[in-house]
C-alpha cells in the first residue's frame, strides 16, 4: 500500500522528460572524447616504445672507400657496445627504395653517393647512453651521424599532448554543460512543484525529505541518459575499430582502440547518475533554504 520513498512528486506530466536524452547526447560526446584521448595516449606510448629502441646511423662520406672504412669501424664499435641488440647495414637497394619518392627510381649501380645506413636495435630505450654513443661515433669520423628520431618524436608528442589536453577540456566542458542543464531542469522542477513543496513543508517535512525526491528523480535521469549515451558511443567505437583495423600499419595501427581496454565505460552511467544526483541535491537544498 505504501511506497517507502515519500512520493509527493507526480511521475507523469513532467517538464524534465527530455533531460535523459540531453544527458545521453552529452555522454555520447564525452565518451568519444575520452576514448580518443586515452587511445591517443596509449597508442603513442606503444608506438614510441618501438621508435625509442630504434636508432639509425648515417655514414655520409662522399668517398666510397672512406665510407666503407667508416662503416666497418662504426659497425664493429656498435656491435661491441653493451645494450645494443643488433646493428646491421641497410642494403643499398632498400635505401634507394626509401629515397625513391624524392629521387625517383634509381639503378642500384649509380654514381649518386647515397649514404650508408646502419640500423640499430636497442635492448631497451635506456640501455645505451645516446650522447656517449654519438661522441664515440664522432671519434671514428665526423661524417658519421647518429639519428635517434628525438626531434621528430618530440614534435609528435607535443601535438598528441595538445590534442589530449583539448579532448580533456572538451570532456570537462561537457560535464559542466550537463551540470548546468541539470541545474536549470531542477530549478524548473522546483518552480513546477512549488505548491507541492509548500504543502510538504506545511506538513512538517525537512528539506532533506524534499531534496531526496528530487535527487532520486535526477539520479534516474542521469543513469538512463548515461546508459543510452555510453551504449551508443560503445557501438560507434566498436564500428570505428573494425573499420580502421584494415589500416593496421604504423601510427594508425598503434592508435587502434582496444575494446578490452574500455571496461571503464560501464562506470560512466553510474558516474553520471552520481553527478546529476549531487547537482540536484545541491540545487534543491539551496532553493529550499530561501523558503521559510
Amino acid at each position: 500500500m505504501f511506497r517507502t520513498k515519500i512520493a509527493f512528486l507526480p511521475t507523469t506530466k513532467q517538464s524534465d522528460t527530455l533531460l535523459p536524452w540531453v544527458i545521453a547526447v552529452m555522454l555520447f560526446l564525452s565518451t568519444l572524447s575520452l576514448v580518443l584521448a586515452i587511445t591517443l595516449g596509449n597508442g603513442l606510448n606503444k608506438w614510441s616504445q618501438g621508435l625509442t629502441t630504434s636508432l639509425s646511423v648515417q655514414v655520409i662520406n662522399a668517398d666510397s672507400d672512406m665510407r666503407t672504412q667508416d662503416t666497418t669501424q662504426a659497425l664493429k664499435m656498435l656491435r661491441a657496445t653493451p645494450g645494443i641488440e643488433y646493428a646491421d647495414i641497410v642494403a643499398d637497394a632498400e635505401v634507394l627504395e626509401m629515397l625513391s619518392p624524392w629521387l625517383g627510381e634509381l639503378p642500384t649501380e649509380n654514381a649518386l653517393p647515397v649514404p650508408t645506413l646502419i640500423e640499430i636495435k636497442l635492448i631497451s630505450p635506456d640501455s645505451v647512453n645516446i650522447s656517449a654513443l654519438k661522441q664515440r661515433l664522432k671519434t671514428i669520423s665526423s661524417d658519421i651521424r647518429l639519428d635517434d628520431h628525438q626531434a621528430w618524436i618530440v614534435q609528435i608528442f607535443k601535438l598528441a599532448s595538445t590534442i589530449r589536453w583539448l579532448l580533456t577540456a572538451v570532456v570537462f566542458m561537457i560535464i559542466l554543460s550537463t551540470i548546468s542543464i541539470v541545474i536549470f531542469g531542477c530549478r524548473a522542477g522546483l518552480a513546477t512543484h512549488k505548491e507541492s513543496i509548500e504543502i510538504m513543508h506545511m506538513l512538517g517535512a525537512e528539506d532533506d525529505i524534499i531534496a531526496k525526491s528530487f535527487d532520486q528523480r535526477y539520479m534516474l535521469h542521469g543513469l538512463k541518459g548515461g546508459a543510452i549515451g555510453t551504449s551508443i558511443a560503445a557501438i560507434v567505437i566498436y564500428m570505428i575499430s573494425n573499420l580502421i583495423e584494415n589500416l593496421d600499419t604504423g601510427l594508425i595501427g598503434a592508435l587502434l582502440p582496444q575494446s578490452s581496454n574500455f571496461w571503464w565505460l560501464l562506470i560512466l552511467p553510474v558516474f553520471t547518475a552520481m553527478i546529476t544526483m549531487l547537482t540536484a541535491r545541491f540545487t534543491t537544498k539551496r532553493a529550499l533554504l530561501k523558503l521559510m
Binding site: 500500500m1 515519500i6 509527493f8 507526480p10 507523469t12 505548491e195 510538504m200 506545511m202 506538513l203 512538517g204
Partner: peptide, 29 residues
C-alpha cells in the same frame, strides 16, 4: 509544524496519491 494541522479551502491534496496516501503523508514524514 508537525504540531500544527492546516486545512485549506482548496484542499491542496496531492492529485496523484490516493486518499489513503494523502492522509498517510504526515506520518511518513
Amino acid at each position: 509544524r508537525r504540531r500544527i494541522g492546516v486545512v485549506f479551502q482548496d484542499f491542496r491534496l496531492f492529485d496523484h496519491l490516493s486518499a489513503f496516501d494523502n492522509v498517510a503523508l504526515p506520518l511518513l514524514i
